[in-house]
Nucleic acid binder design. Structure first.
Lengths: 190, 190
DNA sequence: TCCGCGTCAATACGACCGCAATGTGAAAGC
DNA sequence: GCTTTCACATTGCGGTCGTATTGACGCGGA
């Protein structure tokens, strides 16, 4: 047998390059050549690990959601055991907001994929499942309607933060106010 | 002078074709050839009225925002004079949601442009100005923080409605609940 | 009348695209 | 040591892209 290589390692290496290209120049700049160049490889390598471009895109989408899920998981464990519901929810949705460069890059790619999904039903299905899973989890911590609202609110905040329309302070203030309205029992009313 | 033609009429004709292509096949399928074919014209005509592709895209973006603004204006005048603030706001944001085919198509294009803007600062600036203008107007009808929240919420709802993640009923329920929380004086509390 | 210009069509060009085919090099098994 | 097989590199094909160029056609002004 010849030299053996971990295929998923190579695939994530390529997907990382893809996301760098997508974050810097947009998803429409993602081509086999550009991704290969960004990865310091040739198009042949990319072709070897992804039979077609669509395969590559789909894998990259999974990597992006993997990033956010990993961040969410880390933030949750950092909270220690049995945190207050409000803290838990806040820690989770905070990881979905573009608050630093890493999350900004992921957010850009995620947004690009959202538009990409508008004409690819199978991609849309992946996103749909992820969002609804999150919504259902939130619904165990707060009323169903509030969970639905929260998710939409966070998505919209992410958009406006990404485009620079809202400042980070505004975004966090909006988020905290909404969490207050859900989790605190109509505070400050005599 | 030779044959004269209304240039803006031709330009909107082309832009309409562009939006049809974008709504059906995604913004990445928007090319001079495709747009020209959809408009029943040649690429030469498109080039004649838009020196470059970017000019065409920018004009189309203005047309999309024009659509929503027109819908908003119509909905507002349909409300008659001096409507209740809640009704006014609801009528306006409802026009930003993809609740029928026309608004769905516009929403798809708007989403595509949002992603497009992520790598084009001058496009992002156009969108930013529009959103902040709307936010400031809403801020004359409700608290500033609530206006900020509402806009983000509507944007997120639009996304989830577009992707089919939320149903129209869910979306409208979320919207109405939020409007209740803003406009009704902590109802149902003795 | 005919000239000039606005309007549009036709075509060509160079760049880039996804993808397939083919070649090369090295390590594992015999 | 030869062969096999995986891991990549190279190259080329057919197509589409944005754009520039060029020309035809029609009509208002001289």
């Amino acid at each position: 047998m010849p030299k053996r290589v971990d295929p998923t390692e190579r695939r994530t290496l390529i997907a990382d390059a893809l996301m760098r290209v997508a974050a810097e120049r947009g998803l429409e700049a993602v081509s086999l050549r550009h991704v290969a160049a960004e990865a310091g490889a040739t198009t042949g390598l990319v072709q070897h690990y992804f039979g077609t471009k669509d395969e590559m895109m789909l894998f990259a989408l999974e990597v992006v959601s993997g990033h956010t899920e990993a961040r969410i998981g880390a933030a949750v464990t950092a909270l220690g055991p049995s945190p207050a519901p409000r803290d838990l929810v806040r820690a989770m949705v905070t990881q979905m907001l573009p608050l630093d460069d890493a999350r900004r890059a992921d957010g850009k790619v995620a947004l690009a994929f959202f538009a990409y999904a508008a004409t690819r039903p199978e991609v849309a299905e992946v996103q749909r499942r992820g969002s609804l899973g999150l919504r259902d989890f939130f619904a165990t911590l707060m009323p169903y309607a509030a969970a639905t609202t929260l998710l939409a609110l966070v998505e919209g905040l992410g958009l406006y933060l990404l485009s620079g329309t809202y400042t980070v302070e505004d975004g966090l203030r909006v988020l905290d106010e909404y969490l207050d309205s859900v989790f605190s029992p109509a505070a400050g009313r005599p």
